[in-house]
Design a protein around this nucleic acid. Structure first.
Lengths: 186, 186
DNA sequence: TCTATGTATGTAATATAATAACATGTCAAG
DNA sequence: CTTGACATGTTATTATATTACATACATAGA
């Protein structure tokens, strides 16, 4: 990492997907520049292994949707994904995208970011985790963070009330390190 | 509590608003039956005081929206609120509801439940709190829970990554005490 | 009191997100 | 080579949310 040119420190919606990689597996690197091609390939390989083991099928559409989210490396709306699919010859109606996304989400390959009505590829499929997301309100970067402490606190408090937690949505809006700096010195 | 008249059942799809009151200020009572009329009046009074102090205006529409959410005592979609408003002679276009809801949310009188695309009245306006919501997947009850430990865990972990948290969305889907029991013994 | 100003409300039109319902295609077990 | 399960494609519709602009309404200053 830290192989960054001067061009991409002030990234935004338009970004070089390789040098401006966000949200990868290592939380410490989540907001740092690094070679994302590697992460993406790795995740995809792991997904295929998991799928084979689990008796479900990673069909062309589903696989392509996962690839798109991995390449893009940020949260995409269902209709953004759909546009890409349509351009590549897949169906161009909403259910095509939603079905693939739902499948991937159910199987832990992508996460739904409710705050953004969007989806992002999971960076550690297979590992059981209830993810916490950090969303930068300035550059829209999304990072997946270890959630164990948060989940523990939540589960404990809920148990006191007799509430049985099954699934959690934990999302934090704020400023990523880069945007923190640029906001401080404009 | 449990002082219910026979007149006012039959409100929502599931619950009697008075005897089956959910999510009030006391977390211990959150999922317990009690007289909600008292909570609602109390919250409304507090809201008016806060508004006066804060230099913002609780206009008729805004006040009515808050009342509706307090009466209903569950999460309502913007269009549900809108229907009620229209029936009472207010405007019947979406912005009418969204503007009032946005105002109330910004000022801490209602919360947005992203998982449900809905809004619920806040049961302790004024107290600074980043709420945690418990949502029953069976009966749709929503309870507001103390969030300090969860917030602390989240903030600490994020700070390690250099991320500055500004707002959080923490929602847990699961089974409330009542539905837990009924699911165990059907 | 009048009128300028900011804020709130009303309305129309549109954008964005998600689902329902049904037809067609594909593949593997029997 | 048929059947059944699953996946994909398409049409239509519902649900959620915002933009843009017009109108009313309060109130501070001339």
């Amino acid at each position: 990492m830290a192989r960054m040119s001067d061009a991409d420190s002030a990234s935004a919606s338009v970004s070089d997907p390789e040098s401006d990689c966000r949200g990868c597996a290592d939380p410490a690197a989540a907001f740092a520049a690094h070679d994302h091609r590697h992460c993406a390939g790795d995740v995809l390989a792991r997904a295929e292994a998991l799928v084979a083991a689990g008796g479900v099928r990673l069909t062309p559409v589903r696989r392509r949707v996962l690839e798109i989210l991995l390449e893009e490396h940020r949260a995409l709306g269902a209709y953004d994904v759909l546009k890409r699919l349509a351009a590549e010859g897949f169906g161009n109606q909403p259910p095509v995208a939603y079905r693939a996304l739902d499948f991937l989400a159910e199987n832990g390959f992508v996460h739904r970011i409710r705050r953004l009505n969007a989806f992002a590829a999971c960076m550690h499929p297979g590992e059981d985790h209830a993810p916490v997301f950090l969303i930068c309100r300035n550059c829209n970067a999304v990072a997946e963070m270890p959630a164990a402490p948060v989940r523990a606190a939540l589960g404990a408090a809920a148990a006191d009330l007799g509430f049985a937690v099954e699934r959690t949505t934990v999302e934090a809006m704020g400023l990523c390190p880069a945007c923190c700096k640029s906001e401080a010195a404009p």
